[in-house]
């Protein structure tokens, strides 16, 4: 109330409407709106319709979502399985890729001989096509000609050699680790960039005070890294909850064996586009996509809540 009152009290010499702002914003707003916002809302809309006959849609409210959540014969078990697998895929990446990336970044941010070479080598898989990385890993892990088996046998650990990509119990974790390996360079570079931006004076002062390298890492570097840890976690969540390419490249759309590597994206792909002889059902597919959207949104909101609790330091 007070704000509006004081505004009314101001003299009426209002500036003309800032047309140039609209002009400058227009290209981005139009392109982003046309290719991001409109498809997003249209796909959400699609989930509330069914196809009656060719080209004729009918509004059915939340029926698709209810079917998806309650069809105990097929859709509900597939959805729950895909949800579980998506979270597991994310968890493996979060718990393996993130700490290793942080460790490598911390190691490389100190003066290391050949540090640049290591950074290039660790980052290089991330620019490889996944089709190639997936093919290489399938060869490496192949029970027939895989080098892993020869190494394990040479070490006398042949009994531990398993066809990891083909077992229900290990297929998904193996795929998650391949993905974690391939994109390790990206969080590592983000951590690395943050670490080298920390002023040296802080470390020098800590040395003078008698701190060890270990203490410097835990007391100075890690607290200053926490905002980046949050961002990397969010990127890991968005990138890996949607995991598709590595699974599709190595296991196909049916995400075998017995749907053991089926994630939300492969489930969505089969439903929306159809797979093999299965007919595409864009409406049920859109309902799957809508479910994923809600889950991702919930995760992002959770991040925004947590982020406020992370203390950030001004340097």
């Amino acid at each position: 109330m007070t704000a509006s009152l004081s505004q009314q009290g101001q003299p009426k010499n209002r500036k003309p409407f800032p047309l140039h702002i609209v002009v400058f914003l227009a290209p981005a707003v139009v392109i982003y709106g046309l290719f991001m916002i409109y498809p997003l809302f249209d796909s959400l809309r699609l989930g509330f319709f069914v196809q009656v006959t060719r080209g004729v849609e009918q509004f059915v409210g939340t029926q698709n979502y209810l079917t998806l959540l309650t069809d105990e014969a097929i859709l509900q078990p597939r959805l729950l399985n895909a949800l579980k697998n998506s979270f597991l895929f994310f968890a493996v990446n979060m718990l393996v890729q993130n700490p290793i990336a942080l460790f490598l970044a911390a190691a490389l941010s100190t003066k290391t001989r050949g540090g640049l070479l290591y950074r290039v080598l660790i980052f290089s898989p991330a620019i490889l096509s996944l089709a190639i990385a997936g093919f290489v890993w399938r060869l490496v892990l192949s029970p027939l000609w895989g080098v892993v088996y020869d190494i394990l046998k040479a070490l006398g650990l042949g009994a531990y050699a398993q066809p990891w990509l083909g077992l229900e119990s290990t297929a998904l974790i193996t795929l998650a680790l391949i993905s974690a390996w391939q994109y390790l360079g990206i969080p590592m570079m983000l951590y690395f960039a943050t670490l080298i931006s920390i002023p040296n004076e802080l470390f020098e002062a800590a040395y003078v005070d008698g701190a060890t390298d270990w203490q410097i890492f835990w007391r100075i570097k890690l607290p200053l890294l926490m905002p980046m840890v949050g961002i990397v976690s969010l990127l890991t969540y968005i990138g890996n909850f949607n995991a598709f390419d590595v699974i599709f490249a190595l296991k196909g759309a049916d995400a075998g064996p017995n749907y053991a590597s089926d994630t939300m994206m492969t489930f969505f792909y089969r439903t929306f586009f159809g797979s093999g002889f299965q007919k595409a059902d864009p409406h049920m597919g859109a309902a799957v996509a809508g479910t994923m959207f809600v889950i991702l949104l919930a995760g992002v909101l959770l991040y925004l809540l947590i982020r406020r609790r992370i203390r950030s330091y001004e340097l």
């Binding site: 399938r138 192949s142 027939l144 000609w145 066809p163 990509l165 083909g166 077992l167 064996p257």
Partner: peptide, 10 residues
């Protein structure tokens, strides 16, 4: 051995 992970081309 490991037939579970043997692909068609393999």
């Amino acid at each position: 051995d490991g037939y579970q992970a043997v692909s068609y081309p393999d």
